[in-house]
Design a protein around this nucleic acid. Structure first.
Lengths: 114, 114
DNA sequence: ATACTTACTTACATAAAGTAACCTTATTAC
DNA sequence: GTAATAAGGTTACTTTATGTAAGTAAGTAT
C-alpha cells in the first residue's frame, strides 16, 4: 500500500554480504591480501565453502584472485575497491560487538590464541 | 601460530546479525516498532521464518516483544538499546549499497512500489 | 454458528552448510 | 622411478536451514 517494502539495493547488498561466512571472509581480507589456506585456518571454515564463497565474492566484484606462478604456485585473494569500501560497515560492526556482545562459556581453550 | 584468528566477539556478533533475514528484520525495526504482519509483508518473509528469527533476536536481547491486549490483540516488535545500537552499521551498509550495488533485471514489476 | 483477522505452528520438500576423503600439479627426498 | 609433501582445490555424502503450504487458537463481527 505504501513504501513499507525494503530498498531492493539494500536487500541485494545484504544478501551478498550477510551470507554465511561472506562477512567474515571480507573482514579477514580487510587485513590485507591472503592466500587460501591462511583464510581457511583463520576462520576455521572448510575448504569447500571457502572455495565456493570466494568464487561468489569474486563474481560480485568484491574479491580479486591473483595467481603468482612461483614454485609452488601462490594464489592470493584480496579486496577490490568495492570490497574495501565495506570497511566502515565492519568498523561499526566491530564497535557494536565490542560494546554489546559477550562470550558465554569456554573462554580458555588454547592459551596461545589468547 | 600468531593472532590470525578472528576476534570471537566479532564472530559471534556476525553470526547473530548476518544470519539470513536477521539483518533485514533489524533494519526494518529501526524504522520503528511494528507488528508481525507488517514485517512479514515488507520483507516478503514467511511467517515460519519470521517467527523463528524474532524469537532468536529476542533471545539475544536485540528485539523486544510487547503484547497489547486490545481487540484483536496487538503484538508489537521493537528494538532494545542493543538493537538500536546497530543503527550505524546499517547506515554504513546503506551507503555502501547505494554506491556499489546495482540491480540486474526486472526493475519495473509494480509501479506502486517505486 | 460461520466467517474473518492476527499471530503463530506443524508437516513436509528443497537447498545450503558441514565433514571427510580424494584429486591435480609441482617439488623435493630417497 | 617411486614416495612423500604442499597448495589449492573438488567430489560424495550427511546434517541443518530454509521455503512453502496448510492448520491452529483467540477474539470479534455478522
Amino acid at each position: 500500500m505504501n513504501q513499507t517494502s525494503v530498498c531492493p539495493r539494500f536487500e541485494k547488498g545484504m544478501r551478498i554480504v550477510s551470507k554465511r561466512w561472506a562477512g567474515l571472509i571480507i573482514h579477514q581480507l580487510l587485513k590485507g591480501p591472503q592466500r587460501f589456506c591462511t583464510i581457511e585456518t583463520a576462520l576455521q571454515i572448510s575448504g569447500r565453502l571457502l572455495s565456493e564463497r570466494l568464487k561468489e565474492l569474486e563474481h560480485e566484484g568484491i574479491v580479486k584472485r591473483d595467481v603468482y606462478p612461483e614454485t609452488p604456485v601462490r594464489i592470493e585473494y584480496s579486496l577490490t575497491d568495492k570490497g574495501r569500501a565495506l570497511a566502515p560497515v565492519f568498523r561499526e560492526m566491530e564497535k557494536w560487538t565490542s560494546v554489546w556482545i559477550e562470550l558465554d562459556e569456554e573462554p580458555a581453550a588454547d592459551p596461545l590464541t589468547k
